[in-house]
Write a protein that binds this DNA or RNA. Sequence first.
DNA 1: ATGGAATATAACTGTAAAGGCATATTTAAT
DNA 2: ATTAAATATGCCTTTACAGTTATATTCCAT
Lengths: 113, 113
Amino acid sequence: MSGKIPGMNVSMLGSLAEPNRMAIVELLRNGSLTVGEIANRLELSQPHASKHLKVLSDNGIVEVKPEANRRYYKLRSEPFRVIEYWATSFQKDMERRLDNLDDYVQELQNKKQ
Amino acid sequence: MSGKIPGMNVSMLGSLAEPNRMAIVELLRNGSLTVGEIANRLELSQPHASKHLKVLSDNGIVEVKPEANRRYYKLRSEPFRVIEYWATSFQKDMERRLDNLDDYVQELQNKKQ
DNA sequence: ATGGAATATAACTGTAAAGGCATATTTAAT
DNA sequence: ATTAAATATGCCTTTACAGTTATATTCCAT
């Protein structure tokens, strides 16, 4: 069962486009943390932290490792590879268009009519 | 360690994290387009397209070149460079942590208490 | 088994943003 | 001058989601 290659999708981006969730992600750069630790450091209520972590988890940004009472959340690397690839592809397209002078050609065509 | 990435902010990500705006951005891969062309191809109302373009413009994703009656929108490259750099920095941090066995160390520390 | 700690979740509220409609503004053409 | 085309913007409604509170669940310790 070859897993489908997860592409770029808006909901993944959306999960990162929220201040508290971005703060969580930045916090997890340094390694895994429990819900309580995350809530404490970011001064969020526990349910609030859990909710944001669920969004991040549903979008594949983080993964959980239960350890007795606690749940350790940590970043997954895949979404960041996907985002990097996506962003790079845009830069390549833009460079290519510059090389081919598509802009200039298109501009001329537009002025023709 | 590993501070914030200059230029990366959630509202920029948020401007891309909406289906119609993502569609606009993908459409603009091929070059600049007018509001009307964008609205037609994506089957959006003209005001709707204009509104989304304003969000993208306010966040530096696109730039405008007025040409008589029309306004040509095209992608800016900077935000994509910023996003790529940001995503790359996360992968580097994760690789580094793997190399340093930070996970293991942290796990031990956590179990100590 | 009982109590407490850590976490998840359901129900609720408030607010911000998407989407639609009408209109203002700018420019070209006649 | 007048008309038409392209675009922006303001107002309105609806929907989505962040945030709070209360409660349920799970696990450990005694």
